[in-house]
Design a protein around this nucleic acid. Structure first.
Length: 206
DNA sequence: TCGATTTGACCGTG
DNA sequence: CACGGTCAAATCGA
């Protein structure tokens, strides 16, 4: 069962695709900078974001309690789609029964999904934002501990990727309005780099 | 058997 | 030198 490693320096040349080889020459941070980065609105619901992803790495982030997973578009190989995303688990909400994931998207999809929804299709402008009472705020209890979740791909989350700027502003406005009208006191909400309720899986950041 | 995932190593950046 | 992103062999599972 022993694993051994025979990797050498500069082993990236095994890439067969010329474009990928060129891409590999570009530094990581450059690619990140050049790629379009989008934040995400996260809410309770569907199990996918309209695209198929292949996990290519996972790291334990030193300052974070949880790991960060790295995904690439499944069509990268055949269509050279450059889209990538990272999924980092955040602190679970107050009662510990829901999980929040910080999902960052980098790059646009150039692939043609097989009947797969365009990411823009997710209707953020019309999904209901009915007031959440205390009961509804409790997300489904997950049986396993956070670190046991191998495929955290949106167990109880819905990602809206490539959200236009104006929609982000719109959602933030609505979020504030929602919070003001919420039956929960302000002490249940946190406002750091995102807005979230300790009892709810809903998380908004721009 | 083959595609997907896991995971330690490698490498660039700050 | 620490950190974060990526690679790729090993492993898993359908």
């Amino acid at each position: 069962m022993a694993r051994y490693w025979s990797k050498r320096k500069g082993d990236k040349h095994s890439m067969d695709n010329h474009n990928l080889e060129e891409e590999a020459k570009e530094s990581v941070s450059k690619r990140r900078k050049n790629a379009e980065h989008t934040g995400s609105t996260v809410a309770q619901a569907p199990h996918n974001d309209g695209h198929q992803w292949r996990k290519y790495g996972q790291k334990w982030i030193s300052r974070a309690k949880h790991s960060r997973s790295y995904y690439r578009c499944a069509n990268r190989k055949v269509q050279g789609c450059p889209a990538t995303k990272t999924v980092q688990q955040m602190d679970s909400s107050g009662n510990g029964t829901s999980k929040l994931f910080n999902v960052d998207y980098y790059g646009q999809h150039t692939c043609r999904g097989d009947g797969i929804a365009n990411p823009y299709v997710v209707d953020t402008a019309h999904h209901s934002m009915e007031p959440i009472n205390q009961n509804e705020c409790n997300s489904p209890t997950l049986e396993h501990e956070a670190h046991e979740v191998q495929d955290e791909r949106f167990e109880n989350l819905c990602m809206v990727q490539n959200m236009p700027e104006y929609l982000i502003d719109f959602e933030l406005e609505r979020a504030f309005e929602f919070i003001v009208n919420s039956p929960l006191g302000s002490e249940h909400w946190t406002f750091d780099d995102s807005i979230r309720c300790e009892h709810s899986p809903i998380c908004i950041w721009g």
